[in-house]
Design a protein around this nucleic acid. Structure first.
Length: 473
RNA sequence: GGAGGGAUGGCCGAGUGGACGAAGGCGGUGGUCUUGAAAACCACUGUGGCGUUUCACGUCACCGGGGGUUCGAAUCCCUCUCCCUCCGCCA
């Protein structure tokens, strides 16, 4: 979520940033927000003034009714003067009466009570008026909030400005491209032939775009997950988290999945929760509503979870294999940092993802995402892609994003500076380390042999009891 | 699934519808005292919105969330959520 103060104070600058993203609807929302915000502040000033009167007058009049220290005649005089002031809507005058009481009048208790009832009736008018304005403010708040939740994060100044993913800046590949003296097969042929991927039975169980990893396929995946976790935990100091796979709606808003991408998540009707589309949602919201001490930062977490996504089917695209499926495993890195260090942390996390590719011995390259392809929550993003010689494609195995305080505002996560200053929103970053199916694809296709067997990458062999080759059983 | 009990500031814990943003204690910060420290004593010590003449002042809101009653609600009513205890079931 963007800071309303930023939108209010630099609307043209904010619009220019959003223009870079190509989100025209968001531009309209800015104008609507500004209008609502202006109206809101006008109403607030009016209603808060009235509330101030109500607070002071209800104390004074309430006290007047039961004040036994004053003769009824004295109170009657005050009540009359207050009533008259209230009837003309002059609240200052009404308050002034209590400061300078008029001379006592002849009356009895019944007459006084009668006058007080009239005073309270006028007070009720004041309260009703406050109630109506409060309602208007609440309506405006709701609308303003709705618009704010739909606004994307603003790109960092270092992000190349361009319209679409076609323009993403592709960096030089690293690692040795594989050379085959035969035609390398795609994984959707290799897997079933080896008996390690079973598409037919997967579909039988879960429907289209589900699959089964069988035997060494399942073991290879498990080995890969353990390797990645160990690298990140032992090698890079991430703390492992095991998290709920179903989360409440608030969590989906907190991380920025909702409202914009509500249609790609599976809802669990009975529990009123959503299946995790990525562990990012769970970890991002772990600290929701909390204030952490600056000394605890940066916090680095890693979680391996299944991920569930509806993945709208674009006809004929990525329909084969396990590149785009409804359920897949992912190891996710996440960091909470001080604002000053979030960009250095983004570079570091991307380098960690690249290092994992290198250790697996697979060619990889970094892609610097341009403004038009940034997505909803990131200010800056790098993808890391692995080469898959079978399907002749660079596969996105990691996506590392700095969201700055965008998610922190939504989930309300702050830190208390060590110097005792006011609490501030912290910065949050996420990055895959790595996406499992695509990494498996790359392993299978890069390490395939002429016989259609698969050599096990050296770093994974210890996780497979020393097995060096996956061959048909 | 059944029965009951709770939710108040960083923490613990009071709170008869009006002097309550909220007693008291703990913790924290500053000070007095002291050679130093402890103890004791004194002062300060929540978040957010809005405004202004913006390291300040004013004002409003916030006692789990939402709604209601009332001139006025931490306090009364309704409702939701969460937590706890006991029973049942269960990997």
């Amino acid at each position: 979520m963007l800071d309303i103060k930023l939108i209010r104070e630099k609307p043209d600058w904010v619009k220019a940033q959003i223009e870079k993203l190509g989100d025209t609807r968001a531009l309209e929302r800015i104008d609507e927000i500004l209008t609502l915000d202006q109206k809101r502040r006008e109403l607030l000033q009016e209603v808060e003034g009235l509330k101030s009167y109500r607070n002071r007058l209800s104390k004074a009049t309430g006290r007047l009714r039961g004040d036994k220290r004053m003769a009824v005649g004295e109170r009657m005089a005050i009540a009359h003067a207050v009533l008259s002031a209230l009837q003309s809507g002059d609240y200052d005058q009404a308050l002034a009466v209590f400061e300078n009481p008029p001379p006592a009048q002849d009356t009895d208790d019944a007459g006084f009570q009668d006058t007080m009832n009239n005073v309270f009736a006028r007070m009720k008018d004041l309260s009703d008026r406050i109630g109506m304005i409060d309602q208007q403010v609440a309506d405006i708040d709701a609308h303003r909030q709705e618009h704010l939740l739909w606004l994307p994060n603003l790109p960092h100044e270092s992000v190349p400005v361009a319209a679409s993913e076609e323009d993403n800046r592709i960096h030089e590949p690293h690692g040795e491209m594989p050379h085959f003296d035969f035609e390398p097969q795609p994984h959707w042929d290799l897997g079933p032939a080896l008996g390690i991927i079973d598409f037919e039975r997967g579909v039988k169980l879960g429907g289209t775009r589900f699959y089964i990893l069988a035997g060494m396929g399942a073991r290879l995946q498990r080995a890969l997950i353990n390797f990645l976790l160990d690298e990140l935990i032992v090698g890079h100091g991430f703390q492992e988290m095991y998290v709920p796979l179903m989360v409440r709606e608030e969590a989906m808003y907190g991380s920025g999945q909702f409202p914009k991408f509500a249609d790609v998540s599976y809802r669990v009707e009975e529990a009123e929760t959503y299946m995790l589309p990525t562990a990012e949602v769970a970890i991002a919201n772990m600290l929701a509503g909390e204030v952490v001490d600056e000394g605890q930062l940066p916090l680095a977490y890693v979680a391996h979870t299944p991920c569930f996504r509806k993945e709208k089917m674009s006809a004929g695209r990525d329909v084969r294999g396990i590149k785009r499926v409804h359920q897949f495993e992912k190891v996710e890195m996440f960091r909470f940092t001080r604002p000053e260090e979030s960009y250095a942390t983004l570079e570091e996390m991307t380098a960690i993802a690249e290092g994992l590719c290198a250790k697996l011995g697979i060619p990889y390259r970094r892609v610097e995402i341009v403004t038009g392809d940034l997505g909803f929550t990131a200010t800056k993003k790098y993808d890391v892609e692995m080469w898959a010689p079978g399907c002749q494609e660079w596969l996105e195995v990691s996506s590392c994003s700095n969201t700055e305080d965008f998610q922190a505002r939504r989930a309300n996560i702050k830190y208390k500076p060590a110097d005792g200053g006011a609490t501030r929103f912290l910065h949050m970053l996420n990055g895959s380390g790595l996406g499992i199916p695509r990494t498996l694809i790359a392993i299978m296709e890069n390490y395939q042999t002429v016989d259609g067997w698969i050599r096990v990458p050296e770093v994974l062999q210890p996780y497979l009891g020393g097995i060096e080759v996956i061959e048909p059983r």
